[in-house]
Amino acid sequence: MSKAILYDATQCIGCKLCEQACADRWGHPYDDTLAAQEKLSAEKLTAVLSRGDRFMRRMCMHCADPTCASVCPVGAFTKTAAGPVVYDESKCIGCRYCMLACPFGVPRYEWNKTLPRVRKCDMCADRVAAGGQPACAEICPTGATLFGEYETLVSLAQQRIREAPDHYVPHVYGLHEVGGTSVLLLSGVPFEQFGYRTDLLHEPMPMLTWRVLSRVPDLVLLGSVLLGGIWWITHRREEVAAAEAQSASRSRESG
């Protein structure tokens, strides 16, 4: 069964314990300066954004059909059956196509290292595999970040909107975006206010490139036959000339 995270911004008090827990889990530094930075970086894989008394988390959305996994030339990203999208740094060549392509702008790069890696939230895949839950969900004091079965959390999110329609934007973010994500968001204010795009496709992004890529083998075969055929036609005149020259010399010999 696939796992998911439900983040309900209306229950978030902006304590940023999730940021702290995340930094601890990765062994990243964490202090007041880093806490004040409201954006992701190579050493801050989740961030709590604030607009007045409203909050919103940013982190990897763990797409069902991840763009990063499709664009990576060496397949460094994998969508695990359990839900997390994980990154194998030993494969990565550092082309940064994942950063360009991610519809949520999540992957970060170690720009100042000589042997840099891509960094992003992995939903604490090791803890999840061991039957535990992600550090951010475990530490959340209000239950704003919940970890559980995907289906359960989807129904919970829909139920909350149904029961308190004035309290929520009528949109479970991540239910349909790019074909669905394993991180679901609820908010009391429009998602755009926190930089979440609501104009994303409702089908997986990888099909945008697969539509073209899947035709490559056909194109190779078709192209070879076409080009070979054109060569055969355009060089016929020389064959004729050679044949004529041959027959001419033969008739000269016999005559």
Binding site: C72, P73, V74, Y97
Partner: peptide, 13 residues
């Protein structure tokens, strides 16, 4: 790496 680590879904590949 792309020689031995394949991802045919990737344009970059």
């Amino acid at each position: 790496h792309p020689l031995v680590m394949w991802n045919p879904r990737s344009v970059m590949f």
